[in-house]
């Protein structure tokens, strides 16, 4: 609870800070705006960049992918952060998207569960309540317990959009953190859940999707499908300032690679 309040306060402070950073454009400010799921990655990159070059000011406004894209299109910010690729109607407003990393979402079950592979269609049927017992999938008799995240969570959005079950999931529990999902799945033999790969621990079993396990390799190759891209959005015709350009390049450098990996996601290059 306290943590939540604290985070709200921080976000509000950041928000007000970024507003000034965005409107009053200083020469060497890097203003980013967008997905709250990218906080860890972009925060680490920004910090490392500022520290290394000892210049500029880095701001990040965690508003959400769509808001970030709009902000770039309207010129309110320099670099937008999105956890989805641009939609067709957004493409027309001269935006360039560059994927910097992929965040894999693992489907997890209790270690006692003998199921170890599901395909996308089956997962969708499970989450929409069309398959309700593990028996139907060749497992032991037990009602499937669906564990998920709260509305607006980036992981939930990512998972539901790949599976194609937006707002149609019949959750038994909606938990507020990845850690809670993992603990709950570990404690209930009939549970199934999803969590960002970086956070998954030994206490749960990661199942393969369409026969593919969510390893870094498979996520990079694209054979593991439940993933979401971390995208940097810039304006095509608008030149970035030297500082911004330097940061943009830094994001794709060899050095950034290890920072991105440390933040728990898979760099693309």
């Amino acid at each position: 609870m306290k943590k939540k309040i604290l985070s709200i306060v921080t976000v509000t402070l950041m928000f007000s800070g970024v507003l000034t950073g965005c409107t009053v454009k200083e020469g060497n400010t890097i203003a980013t705006d967008g997905s709250s799921s990218m906080e860890k990655v972009i925060g680490a990159l920004g910090e490392a960049f500022i520290e290394k070059n000892d210049m500029g000011r880095f701001t990040y406004n965690p508003t959400g992918s769509s808001t970030g894209i709009t902000a770039v299109a309207e010129g309110r910010c320099d670099i937008g952060l999105s956890t989805r690729v641009l939609k067709d109607e957004e493409m027309s407003s001269d935006l360039t998207e560059t994927i910097i990393a992929y965040d894999g979402i693992a489907v997890i079950v209790n270690p006692e569960n003998n199921i170890s592979d599901l395909d996308i269609e089956t997962i969708a049927k499970i989450y929409t309540g069309k398959i309700t017992n593990w028996k139907e999938l060749g497992g032991r008799d037990g009602e499937i317990v669906l564990i998920g995240r709260e509305a607006n969570s980036g992981t939930r959005d990512g998972f539901e959009s790949v599976i194609g079950t937006e707002n149609a999931c019949k959750y038994r529990q909606e938990l507020t953190t990845t850690g809670d999902v993992i603990t709950t799945v570990a404690n209930n033999p009939n549970a199934i859940g999803y969590a960002s790969i970086a956070s998954v621990k030994e206490i749960v079993k990661v199942i393969s999707v369409n026969g593919v396990l969510p390893t870094d390799e498979n996520i990079k190759k694209g054979t593991y499908v439940i993933k979401r891209p971390f995208v940097l959005i810039t304006k095509t015709d608008n030149q970035l300032s030297p500082t911004e350009q330097a940061f943009y390049e830094f994001c794709f450098s060899e050095e950034a690679k290890s920072i991105i990996e440390l933040a728990g996601v898979v760099p693309v290059y």
Partner: peptide, 23 residues
């Protein structure tokens, strides 16, 4: 059944709801 209280309705979605939205 799984339920949600007034208190938890506020706390569980506060951190992800987009600021300024009706949500």
């Amino acid at each position: 059944r799984s339920v949600r209280f007034l208190t938890t309705a506020v706390s569980s979605e506060m951190s992800y709801a987009t600021s300024g939205s009706l949500h």
